[in-house]
């Protein structure tokens, strides 16, 4: 049968490609920000802050493109849900990229100091978050509902790590008030990673909405 919506399908593919591009840049920003944090590489941290503009531009481009597709094609059913989910996912990815920038800024504030990373779970949280992001985006691209659910489970792990890290940092702070500058930044980073995982869970929710046509609350 003749596909009368070839051009629309091409546009949807283009929308998806832009999102994947944005996601790739965000993952890279996150990896760099965390490496900079771990190795106290302030130069690398500053580069992450600079490079965020490209991600913000893509965010705007995707938004405008999605709005135009809705106006032009009057999408229904899966098409409509795909575009709405794209809009929501894009704004979550943009927030995640902002957290990478925040981690980079915290890194710059810590500067050179004796690293207290080992009293935290921040590395595990970072690893889990990146894994979650890959899964959530795959859930959307491939319509994989299992991945979407798994992301919600991993978010619980991050939340537990967050609570533990919060406790150990505040305890350490009581004994070593001279380390306040670094410890406060670590508290912030702890929070940034916890929020990042929440936004990734939102992405999984949007994927579930696309797949099932229902609103899910995986952030519990």
């Amino acid at each position: 049968m003749m596909n009368v919506r070839k051009n629309f399908d091409k546009n949807l593919q283009e929308l998806q490609n832009k999102m994947l591009e944005m996601n790739k840049l965000t993952i890279s920003a996150f990896e760099k920000a965390f490496t900079a944090f771990k190795t106290q590489d302030v130069e690398l941290a500053l580069r992450v802050i600079d490079e965020d503009t490209a991600i913000d531009n893509l965010d705007q481009e995707i938004n405008q493109f999605a709005v135009w597709l809705i106006a032009k094609e009057q999408p229904f059913a899966t098409d409509l849900r795909r575009i709405i989910a794209s809009l929501k996912i894009t704004s979550d990815i943009e927030r995640i990229a902002d957290f990478a920038v925040n981690i980079a800024k915290a890194t710059a504030k810590i500067g050179k100091a004796e690293s207290l990373l080992n009293i935290t779970n921040l590395e595990q949280m970072n690893e889990t978050s990146l894994k979650m992001l890959n899964m959530a985006v795959s859930a959307f691209i491939d319509g994989n509902m299992e991945f979407a659910k798994e992301v919600a489970g991993l978010d619980d792990q991050v939340d537990n790590h967050y609570a533990e890290t919060y406790k150990s940092i505040t305890e350490y702070l009581r004994i070593h008030p001279e380390q306040t500058t670094q410890l406060v930044q670590l508290l912030f980073i702890n929070r940034f990673l916890e929020r990042t995982a929440d936004h990734i869970t939102n992405i999984a929710e949007s994927a579930a909405y696309l797949i099932k046509g229902q609103i899910y609350d995986l952030n519990q």
Binding site: M1, N3, V4, R5, F8, P75, F76, A77, T78, D79, L80, R81, G213, Q214
Partner: peptide, 17 residues
Amino acid sequence: FSNPKDQRTEDYVTGRF
């Protein structure tokens, strides 16, 4: 129009046939 149950409805409302 937002979540049809039957694939044939989906194909029709999205303009696929």
